[in-house]
Write a protein that binds this DNA or RNA. Structure first.
Length: 944
RNA sequence: GCUCGAAUGGUGGAAUGGUAGACACGAGGGACUUAAAAUCCCUUGACCUUUAUCGGUUGUGCGGGUUCGAGUCCCGCUUCGAGCACCA
């Protein structure tokens, strides 16, 4: 029988589906292993060959683990909410649900052809009520919680309310937006609305007026990680800063735990580093400065407390509340003008144009240590959102302060021995301190930093500030709270209604709150989000039903929230839902959660480093505090598969003609390179007839050939439609089969590396699979496995392979194991090996890589079970042992001759044998041998 | 600017400090064939030498170092990629 991959793959895919081969159930008697891919957003373009790379890699691992006896969970689902479907809906009126389902079907169809071992009975879709019910539930729990810094844990908000009733904010140590102070009496005197507003300062899901990234092009706000270089990640529309009341998640409360957790997980150093940067922990000092001729004081944050004696001015962020208070009458007009001007600048302009600008506030601050007064300036190089929005400026040791001081002619006072600040500031945290004031110039006590190193000086100043109650030691994080509202239709609705402007959670039994139908997907004419179009969008507290909004009476029927949740909401806990996808009592049952625990191997792109991978770690930690997720870190091992880039081809058109010149001759003409569809190019040779048929305007094209061929140029670019370099997996499968595709994707290179797709090399893998098939099948098509005992050489070749493949899979080094298969099959076919004992093992080894052909051959070997349930072969080193070992005898790094020694020869025996060998007789090139070193790897090195 | 990672033939890429370039593509040559496809065999880093074999020199971005021995370890650069970036 010939290798007919189409029939074989079709047959087995059908059989797997019918028999539920990959359905998995919890089984306490077996060890679990949880493999997960980042679930895809089903885009309209379908899959290209880059998408399945990670799925194939994880599928190989999942199948391998299964053969090793693990109970493997390998689920798949869809991140179904997202902007493209909604944009499409706005343009065409097509409901996003319809588009999404269509795309999902297409994805499923494509995925099924590749032969994955997914358990589809556990599929989740984030846009289905039975799924997003638990997204809404988690949000409500966050609303009902605050973060206790002492316990390092989320707590029910009721505990905090009880505390306020008893003793107000006294001795409170909790995560909060701003530090508030009130007594129990004050708390009790507040109105309901005031209490509600105050609690927002502490809740983990809270509403706040914040500066948000407003994207007019998309009509919504965006999270920080959704904004890249001042434009929206999706669509590339400009983003501006705007103050809006929004739902937020207090991710910052978990900053330290998110940082600490990184040390406990097996992720790549680069992605951990990215997260560390994003969290941006910095240890420093907060210091209070009094304002001259006033009782007013304000706080600044610095990491360089040691430079307190070099402070020559202060700077406020233009958006800071302090600006209003500290601007004097005389300066008001100028300051207002400046603040207005700054506000108009977009994020983008700020980044591209870093001119030094600023304005004097008119006030002076008093240095708490020296009582010296220094001017307070306002400039946009200080950010309102970080620290306190105010800084002490030390131009000698901070390049930004330096630039500002030079521009406005302010004093620059160096504090480190030997540093030259005439051209630039000295920012390094090293050197010996000088220029401390004399003790009698200090306000109280004495702090002399002279002679200390920077590090010592920082510590000494911190201690001084603390001891003299001038401020406190403070750790700041760059990580901001996540803005959680989107003014969109296609997302999870908030299970929230409003009573007199006070948000209330829908009762848990009313979940899920389903996304309503709307007449339009655009914002309303009054600027409300799309849900403003929904008629049936009010909550009746008396009946617990969703009713028409005309019935709103603000007594029992209240308006519902019009915002929806952002994309990361649904993807933050989906790995938990896969464990128990049909549970309608809880997100995941305790028993199931306790069995699967966490994802053992997570695969996905590194582009989610500061988005999904932070949010879901945060989300999981919160659930963990609630007692839901038993393990604090959800993904114990993470592999980031590289992007598959496109390999574009070019043709060169001679200017103003319809004539195309081959690559090697193009320099002789004035040409324009044009992208040409890679699917009509083979080995960079253009299929001229296909090219003429490709576009009507090329029908009459003429060509200047070299050697009778048209050679195309090429370049590596992103795989995209507009570059005509998209390669579709369906097409590859049609031509070579899924097994070849799987092998080739793994063969391309290390899984973590980005690399261009080049269909040219695929023949090698296809040839290999045919060769493998031919070990079992004669040329004439007959099955030809013999029951003879295998030879020593055959077993050696086989066991070398078992060892290599097992190690490689464990190390995710699939490309080298594909090579190992090729070598082994080559050797075996040269030995004409068709022994059952060998082939039986070979099939089991290759099954994770090429499951279809493996099943087919496994069946023809006479097994009744599937090969995916067979045992992983055991390596036996006995077969690799040799009688004699050939040593290379070398000096000066060159092999001079070889000698054979029996296995187990001692170092001394070898040395003596080499010394007395007839070729040396103790001398080489007339010089006596000084030293003989026996190197493990069959090499003996001689030193003269 | 700070942090992390990388650099090996025409290409993708192999090498626990131990014979660099496995494996594959591409290229060249050959066998089979009316021809094509398919299959199989040989050559393939560069340079020198030779009719050919044999042989030699050189070679992993650059410059040093450690070592009997360095693509691999250490120090100093260069280039490329990624992340963060007026974060005080």
């Amino acid at each position: 029988m010939d290798y007919n991959f189409r029939d074989i793959e079709c047959k087995w895919q059908k059989r797997w589906a019918e028999n539920g081969t990959y359905t998995v159930i919890e089984d306490e008697s077996r060890k679990k292993f949880y493999v997960l891919n980042m679930f895809p957003y089903p885009s309209g373009a379908g899959l290209h060959v880059g998408h399945p790379l990670g799925y194939i890699a994880s599928d190989i691992y999942a199948r391998y683990k299964r053969q090793c006896g693990y109970n493997v969970l390998n689920p798949m689902g869809y991140d179904a909410y997202g902007l493209p479907a909604e944009q499409y809906a706005i343009q065409t009126g097509q409901h996003p649900a319809v588009t999404t389902v269509g795309n999902i079907d297409r994805y499923r169809n494509q995925l099924d052809k590749i032969g994955f071992s997914f358990d589809w009975s556990r599929e989740v879709r984030t846009c289905e009520p039975s799924y997003y019910r638990w997204t809404q539930w988690a949000f409500q729990k966050m609303f009902g919680s605050y973060y206790d810094n002492r316990l390092r844990k989320a707590q029910p908000i009721e505990n905090l309310i009880a505390k306020f009733e008893e003793s107000g904010t006294e001795g409170l140590d909790v995560a909060q937006s701003e530090e508030l102070e009130f007594t129990a009496e004050q708390w009790k005197s507040f109105s309901l609305k005031e209490q509600s507003d105050l609690l927002m300062n502490y809740r983990i899901a809270f509403q706040a007026e914040t500066m948000v990234n407003w994207c007019p092009g998309l009509g919504t706000v965006l999270a920080n990680d959704e904004v890249v270089d001042g434009v929206s990640e999706r669509g590339g529309f400009p983003v501006e800063q705007k103050k809006m009341r929004q739902w937020c998640l207090r991710v910052s409360a978990y900053a330290q735990r998110l940082l600490d957790g990184l040390d406990t997980i097996d992720w790549s150093e680069s992605i951990k580093e990215t997260q560390r940067n994003w969290i941006g922990r910095s240890e420093g000092t907060e210091m209070r400065f009094h304002v001259k001729d006033s009782d007013f004081q304000f706080t600044i944050f610095t990491t360089r407390a040691d430079t307190i004696f070099g402070v020559t001015f202060m700077v406020l962020a233009p958006e800071s509340e302090l600006v209003r208070t500290l601007t004097t009458k005389e300066q008001r007009e100028e300051v207002d003008r400046y603040v207005q001007k700054v506000r108009k600048r977009t994020e983008r302009e700020r980044i591209s144009d870093r001119k030094v600008t600023g304005v004097f506030s008119g006030s002076y601050a008093i240095n708490p240590l020296t009582e010296e007064s220094v001017p307070i300036w306002i400039s946009d190089y200080v950010l309102a959102g970080y620290g306190t929005g105010a800084i002490m400026a030390v131009p000698a040791h901070d390049s930004r302060d330096y630039a500002f001081a030079k521009h406005f002619g302010l004093e620059i006072r160096p504090l480190i021995e030997g540093c030259d600040v005439s051209q630039e500031s000295f920012d390094a945290k090293e050197g010996i301190m000088i220029n401390s004031p004399r003790p009698d110039q200090l306000r109280d006590g004495c702090l002399v930093l002279n002679g200390l190193t920077v590090k010592e000086a920082i510590a000494a100043t911190k201690k001084y500030v603390k001891d003299h109650n001038l401020g406190r030691i403070k750790v700041n994080y760059r990580l901001r709270d996540a803005i959680f509202s989107r003014q969109r239709y296609w997302g999870e609705p908030f299970p929230v209604y409003y009573d007199n402007g006070i948000p209330h959670m829908l009762p848990e039994e009313c979940l899920p709150l389903e996304l309503p139908e709307v007449s339009e997907f655009k914002p309303t004419s009054t600027g409300e989000p799309p849900l403003g179009h929904a008629r049936k969008w009010a909550f009746d507290t008396a009946t617990g039903k969703i009713v028409d909004k005309e019935l709103i009476d603000n007594k029992t029927v209240f308006p519902l929230e019009l915002n929806t949740m952002p994309g990361f909401a649904g993807s933050s806990a989906y790995y938990l839902r896969y464990m128990d996808p049909h549970n309608d009592k809880s997100l995941v049952s305790a028993a199931t959660d306790n069995y699967w625990k966490c994802v053992d191997l997570y695969l996905g792109g590194s582009e989610h480093a500061t988005g999904h991978l932070i949010y879901s770690r945060f989300w999981n930690k919160f659930l963990h505090d609630l007692g839901v997720s038993v393990v604090e870190e959800p993904f114990s091992k993470l592999i980031n598969q590289g992007m598959i880039q496109g390999r574009s081809n070019f043709v060169y058109r001679i200017k103003d003609t319809n004539k195309f010149v081959s690559l090697g001759l193009k320099d002789q003409y004035d040409t324009t390179p044009l992208h040409v569809d890679v699917n009509i190019v083979s080995n960079d040779i253009l299929d001229i007839d296909a090219f003429k048929a490709w576009r009507p305007e090329y029908q009459t094209a003429e060509f200047i050939l070299e050697d009778g061929k048209y050679i195309c140029g090429w370049a590596v670019e992103k795989m995209s439609k507009s570059m005509y370099n998209v390669v579709n997996p369906d097409m590859i499968i049609e031509r070579y089969g899924a097994d070849t595709l799987r092998m080739y994707e793994m063969f391309l290179g290390p899984i973590e590396q980005s690399k261009p797709w080049d269909t040219n090399g695929i023949d090698g893998c296809h040839r290999f699979i045919r060769k493998f098939w031919n070990l079992f099948n004669n040329r004439d098509g007959s099955f030809c496995v013999s029951d003879d005992a295998p030879t020593k050489e055959e077993l050696k070749s086989l066991h070398k392979l078992i060892k290599k493949v097992t190690e490689d899979i464990e190390n995710f080094s699939y490309n080298t194991s594909v090579s190992a298969f090729m070598i082994c099959v080559n050797e075996l076919s040269q030995m004409k090996c068709n022994k059952r004992q060998v082939l039986d093992i070979l099939v089991r080894l290759i099954a994770p890589f090429t499951p279809h052909i493996a099943e087919e051959l496994w069946e023809s070997l006479g097994h009744n079970s599937t090969v995916c349930d067979s045992a992983w072969p055991v390596f036996n080193s006995e077969y690799l042992k040799e009688d004699n070992i050939t040593y290379s005898i070398s000096f000066n790094g060159k092999t001079r001759f070889t000698m054979d020694f029996p296995v187990g020869a001692t170092q001394q025996q070898i040395q003596e044998a080499v010394l007395s060998n007839e070729k040396t007789q103790g001398y080489i090139a007339g010089k006596p041998i000084r030293k003989i070193i026996v190197v493990t790897n069959k090499i003996v090195n001689i030193v003269l």
